[in-house]
Each structure stands twice: as structure tokens, then as C-alpha cells.
Amino acid sequence: MERFSQFRDKGSGIAPFLPIPTESAGFALPVHIFLYVCRVPLLIIFALSYFLVLQWLPIGIWGRKAGLWGILGIPGIWWIDLQVDGVKKGSLAKNSTKFPEAGSIITSSRASPIDPCYLAAIFDPIFAATYPHTKLVERISLFTAIYRSFTHPKLEPAYNARLVDLETLVKQNPDRIIVVFPECTTTNGRGILPLSPSLLTIPPRTKIFPFSLRYTAPDVTTPIPHCYFTFMWNLCSKPSHCIRIRVAEAIYNTSKPIPATKAATTTAVSSSYTTNYFDTLGSDNGVSSDADTLVSSGGEDQEASMTREERAFLDKIAEALARLGRVKRVGLGVKEKIDFIAMWATSRSRR
């Protein structure tokens, strides 16, 4: 793998795009083959039944969650190790405010198609796809979130994509949790990529919960696109899998000023005889200006225009994800992964 040394992070030496090799089954190979042959047809039938029929029926949230837990249970994902910062084991019910609730946002690491499936089974959230050079996101379905774990990364959204900022998405769905994968692509779980600037549009009063999901064995990650057979073999041929979930305490977007309350604004405008006229100018223009800037900067590089507060906010979330996953941050992003995939495909075709 020395020919891929250019895709190792210079500071840490981590290669976040290399697939993790599968351990040899040895004498247990017949058992693995038996499990694979039994589970794959059942998993395909159950998944098709859910995405084509069940999710469209009026079965409610608990019905959808039960269907997703069935999908997770077939390949043997039984053991869930959950830890929340600042909460002792067994006391999560007494500290419900330290766990995502309606109106909050989850920023999760992204390494496997299991990530969105597990989060959907727990929270029934809305998924938003992020991109590295825009503050806008694209609302996607659970199936699309799973499928994109197998596809090539994208630097820009499709020309016909319906884009919106996270603040608007939160306001439109106050009773739902929103899940964002800010790394914009999958990794092998051994590093945290630079985060999307879309997180900068989160309202300052919205709770942001960094999530880290890691797997034992770790070979169910999909850093290489279209690795369907390899993923299915690693997932269905082993007796069981463990998901280790770590949740950080809520973080707030300190890069945006907290807006004045409606009451204060009303008072300032209504007292026309005692209020300086020039103090009220620009209150509406400021909002429209920010919105215009946000839309016009959809395809531009946001890195150079970030303020110190914005960089510090993104760094805080990235550090939380790295700490939770016990990994390091890397300087490689979506562009480097695209170059890596091109070299990987070329090297495989020469064999």
C-alpha cells in the first residue's frame, strides 16, 4: 500500500480511505459460509419489504423502528454499547436533556451504511446531505442515505437538488431530529475529515450532539464505493457485530449571534417618539442580506471566508468527534478521496 502513501495524513500518518482487511475465517469458514447463505436472502427480502411497502403504510414511528431493528438484527447486530458524556450508566432516563430530542441536530461520523440505519431505528430523524463547499444541505431519505454510503463522493450537489440551510430545515421541522454527516463522505473510521461549512447555519439556540459510531469488527465500513459484495460478506458471514456509540454533551453554535427576542424588537419599534430612527434602520435588511449571501455562496469555497469564530465552532465539533471515536483529525477531504478512488480503480484494473 506504499503507492497510496500520498493519501496518508502528513501529521498522523492515518489513511482514512483504505479499506480495512477482513480477518481470515480459518477453520470457521464453513460456518461463515452457512451464515452468509442463510442471512443474505432473508436480509434482502426484509429490506425490500420495508423500503417498498412497510415505510409507506400508516404503521407509525414504532412500526418503522421495529422494521429497522429487524433489518439490523438479521445480520447479527445485537450488542450496542452506548455511553453519553456526563451520564452514568443506567441513569440516562434521569438525564434526558443530554440526549437528542425534537428540534436538535445530530452530527455523526460516517463510515458505514449501518450508521443511518441505526440512527433511524433510534430517532426516526430527517437526514440532510452535506457538501464541502456550500453552506446549504439537501434533505434526503433513509434509503438515499444508505445508498450514498456506497457511491462516489460529491464535491457539489446535483444541479436539480433542492437545497436549504439547516436553520430553515430546523424551523420547518420543529418536532423532528435532524441527522447530518458533516464529513461529506465515508471513511474507514480511523480519522475525522474536515467538516462541511453547512454546520455554520445552525441556529444558536439549537442543541448539537456529536455522535461517534464504531464497529467490531471494523471491516463493515465502506470507504471504497460500490463494494456491495465485500460489505455483505463482512456483514452477514459473522455471528454477531458490536456497535460502540459515544455521544458528546450538547454544543451550541457560538459563531452566530443570538437574535433579539420578539418582545424587545416590538418595544423598540413601537416607541417611535423616543427611539432614534437611525437605530431601527437595517433590521430587516440585515436578514435579507444574510439570506442572499447564503444562497449566492452555494457553489463557492467557504474556507477562505470563514471568521475565527466560525473556524473555532467547526473545530469544536471535529474535536468532539475525534475524542469520542478515539481517533485523530486528518487534513484529507472529499477531493483527496476522489483522487484516491481513481488511483485505487487503476491499480485494481492492472492486476
Rank of each mutant, 00 (worst) to 15 (best):
A121D: 11
A121G: 05
A121F: 04
F123N: 05
F123M: 04
D124T: 07
P125Q: 06
F127A: 07
A128N: 09
T130Y: 10
T130F: 11
T130S: 15
T130V: 08
Y131M: 09
Y131D: 09
P132G: 14
P132Q: 13
T134F: 09
T134E: 07
K135T: 15
K135A: 15
V137A: 14
V137Q: 11
V137R: 03
E138R: 15
E138A: 15
S141A: 03
S141R: 06
L142F: 06
L142M: 08
F143K: 10
T144W: 01
A145P: 01
A145K: 01
A145G: 00
A145Y: 01
I146S: 00
Y147I: 01
R148V: 00
S149V: 00
F150L: 00
F150H: 00
H152Y: 03
H152D: 03
K154N: 01
L155A: 02
L155R: 03
E156L: 03
P157S: 04
P157K: 05
A158R: 10
A158M: 09
A158F: 13
Y159W: 11
N160C: 11
N160Y: 11
A161W: 06
A161T: 07
R162E: 15
R162Y: 10
R162V: 14
R162S: 14
R162T: 14
L163I: 15
D165H: 13
L166V: 10
L166F: 09
E167D: 11
T168I: 09
L169C: 02
K171W: 08
P174V: 10
P174T: 07
D175S: 10
I177V: 13
I178D: 03
I178H: 06
I178G: 04
V179P: 03
F181I: 00
F181W: 02
F181N: 00
C184K: 06
C184A: 08
C184S: 07
C184I: 00
T185P: 12
T185F: 10
T186Q: 01
T187S: 06
T187E: 03
T187M: 02
T187V: 01
N188M: 01
N188A: 01
N188F: 01
G189C: 11
G189N: 06
G191W: 07
L193Y: 12
P194D: 10
P194K: 11
L195H: 07
S196N: 05
P197G: 09
P197W: 13
S198P: 11
S198Q: 08
L199A: 12
L200K: 04
T201Q: 00
T201F: 00
I202A: 09
I202N: 07
P203K: 03
P203F: 08
P204S: 10
K207F: 11
F209D: 12
F209Q: 09
P210C: 04
P210I: 03
F211I: 08
F211Y: 14
S212C: 14
L213K: 05
Y215E: 07
T216K: 14
T216P: 09
A217W: 09
A217N: 15
P218G: 02
D219C: 13
D219L: 05
D219F: 02
V220G: 00
T221A: 14
